[in-house]
Structures are given as C-alpha cells and as structure tokens.
Amino acid sequence: MSAGHSEAGVVERAFAAALYAGDDTALDTGASLLAADPAADAELARRGEEFLRRAWQRGWQPADVVRLVRRDLDEHHVRLVAGLITAEVRAYRQLPPRWAAQVAGLGDTDWRADRFSYATAVLELYRLLARLPAIEPVGPAPGGAPPHAAPAHGEPRMLGRIRALLAKAEATGFPEEAEALTAKAQELMARYSLDEAALAARTHSPEEPGALRIGVEAPYETARAILLDAVASANRCRAVWNEAFGFSTVVGFEPDLEVVELLYTSLLVQGTGAMTKAEAEQRAAGRKRTKTFRQSFLLAYAHRLGDRLASTSERVTAGEPSLLPVLAARDVAVTDRADRMFPETTTTRVRGATDEAGWHHGTAAADRARTDHGGAPGRGRGRLPG
C-alpha cells in the first residue's frame, strides 16, 4: 500500500469512528487515530477543503459558515475554519462578489494545541460542515458561472457620502446630531435608488434582482430581524429571516442591497449604544432592568424606525412621479425573485413587549435616529418574514 493510500485510510477510519456519531467516545477514538499519525495531516486538510467546496455548492458562503461555527462551537474552531477557508479559496482565480470582503475579514487563523486536542477540534468542525444542509444560493459559487457583470472597482461617490454620514452618526455623542446625520443618509439612499432605477430604465439594463445574507444573531434576534425587515422594506427590498441559522436573506436590486446593509449595520450600532445608555440611567435611578427591558427597547426601536424609514422613502419617491412605473416594475421583479427563492415563507407572531420603560426608551431612541426630517410618520412596518 502506498503512503498516500495509508494516510487516506487513517482519515477514513477516523471519520468512520467520529464524524457521523454524536458521542464523545467515538470522537476520542477518531482523534486518537489522527493524533497517532502525523503523516495524515495533509490528507485531513484536503478533506476539510472538500467539505467547504460542498458547502459552497449547497449555497453557503464564508461568512455564513463562520457565523454558524462561532454560534455552535468554540473560538478555536472559528480560527480553524478561517484557516481552512483561506487555504481553500486560493484555488480560485477570482472570487464572486462579496466573497473577497468576507475572506479578508476572517480574522486570526492561528491556533496551537497538542495533537489530540487539535484532532478533536478538527473532527468537531468537520462534523458540523458535513451536516450543512442546502440553502438558497444568493450568488454563484467559486468556479461556477460568472456573474452577469464583473464587479466595479471602488464604489460610487454617493455610497461613499452615505457611509461617511453613518460613521459620523455612530461616533457622535449628541443625539440631535446623530438624528440629522442619519436622516440625511437615508434621504441620500432613497435618491441613490431612484437615480439607479432611472439609469437602468434609460439604458435598458438587463439587471435582475440579486440577494445577500446578513447575520441576525442572538441575543434579541427577533427585534434585530424586525429592524432589518424595516430597513429592507423602506429601500425596495424584501428580507426573509432564517432563525435556525441566524441570518436574513435580503432580495433586491444591487444598489438597494448595498444601502440596506449599510443602514442596518449603522442603526444596530446606534440602537445598541442608546440601549446601553438607557440601562445606565435606569440603574442610576435605582431601578434594576432585565432582559425584558432590552427586548422591549429593541422592539420599540425597530417598530418606530420602520415608520420613519418608510416615511422618508415615500416622501423622496413622491418627488419623482415620472419614475413610478419603473419603480413598480422593479418592485414586481423583487417580489417575484423572493417568492421563487422562498416559496414557503411563514409569518411569525412576535411576542409583545412586556417592559413599559424599555418600550418608551426604545421609541425615544428611534425618534432620535429618525430619518424623515420630522415628516409625518408612515404606516407601520411590523411584518416579520419567517
């Protein structure tokens, strides 16, 4: 038997013992086999890259895999999978859009341990990877069909302005300034969307709606999902929450997807900061606040911002009546794409807020982050796709 066959045999025996069994005894048996044979390390790494390629083919992307590993395993597993992803993607001449940024943000890949501990961790990681189900793809996998158009280098000037405004809103310690900055950013987002729609109509662009996944993680994931849904709806997108795997899939045209990701991330930062400050004020006043305060705060924050974002979008759109047919056609295209991707979505009943102080503080925080320049609030946007 050749050396290569011997190494593969060790890995196969370790996998047979541990990979598809859930008990610690089987895991120890597999780890002992691997720890005793350093020559099998290269084959073990190769098999890990195979698991990743299967994950890509099943619709997963690097950020999705890392998010799940971080939730279900430990930090050293995150480092292991980051190193594995970094090695695997070297095989591709060009990564799909958004993949390069995900790979660049993987973080530290170094983890040192004795051979048995290392083999145990690798088997635990591979056991998770081997059980990943197929999910709805949001873009081509590496090595598959190329996207319709190559991604442009850099970003439009308008997105740069929006990004800068939101960064200032997150950094300022003055609520009124954050409100004005965020309001201006949302108005620019709405105008950017209109400009892109008008350009696509003039040039008869073949562009179709795309999709991206955004992490929606515990704690308070329901409130976070509602906030993302509000941001998506106000920017002509649809968001579908996958609670089991901790993400929402946002469907829309590419310019709108970009601003949804920017705004949601910024509002989450602003909301978390406001919640922390409100809790400190409650404690200083001698009132102990609990998880129900934070949950109620974030639910109120999400619901109130849904009204504000919708109002701003509607006001800006009303100023361009000639684009209404174009926008209506794009809305239909987005809905059709979302329905084809998720033909069996359900609506989740959200548990009501139970802390009155948390609700009032959350509403006030949303008012400070409002994006409608004080205009009349729009209709509520409390829909939560499931």
Score class of each variant (00 low, 15 high):
Ala16Ile: 00
Pro140Gln: 10
Leu34Cys: 06
Lys184Thr: 15
Asp367Ser: 07
Glu43Lys: 12
Ala17Val: 07
Gly22Met: 14
Leu19Met: 08
Phe174Glu: 13
Pro133Gly: 05
Ser205His: 05
Cys237Ile: 12
Thr29Asn: 12
Ala369Leu: 08
Gln270Val: 14
Tyr20Gly: 02
Ala16Arg: 13
Pro96Val: 11
Ala152Gln: 12
Leu106Asp: 08
Arg13Ala: 14
Leu298Cys: 05
Pro146Ser: 14
Gly105Arg: 06
Ala285Ile: 06
Glu179Ser: 10
Thr276Ala: 13
Ala169Gln: 04
Asp64Tyr: 00
Gln295Asn: 10
Ala201Gly: 00
Arg238Asp: 15
Ala369Cys: 07
Ala278Thr: 01
Arg308Tyr: 15
Asp331Phe: 03
Gln270Leu: 15
Ala164Tyr: 07
Asp37Thr: 08
Glu170Gly: 04
Ala149Cys: 11
Gly48Val: 09
Met189Ile: 06
Ala167Ile: 13
Phe116Pro: 00
Glu208Cys: 00
Ala201Trp: 10
Trp56Cys: 06
Ser322Lys: 10
Ala369Lys: 01
Leu327Gln: 07
Ala31Gln: 01
Gly378His: 09
Val250Arg: 13
Pro140Asn: 08
Glu179Ala: 04
Pro156Lys: 01
Leu267Asn: 03
Arg127Asn: 04
Glu217Cys: 06
Ala63His: 11
Pro62Glu: 01
Glu208Thr: 15
Ala185Lys: 01
Thr249Leu: 09
Glu50Ile: 13
Glu176His: 13
Glu179Met: 08
Leu84Asn: 05
Glu187Gln: 11
Ala211Val: 05
Leu262Asn: 08
Gly271Phe: 05
Arg287Glu: 14
Ala318His: 02
Ala180Trp: 14
Phe253Lys: 04
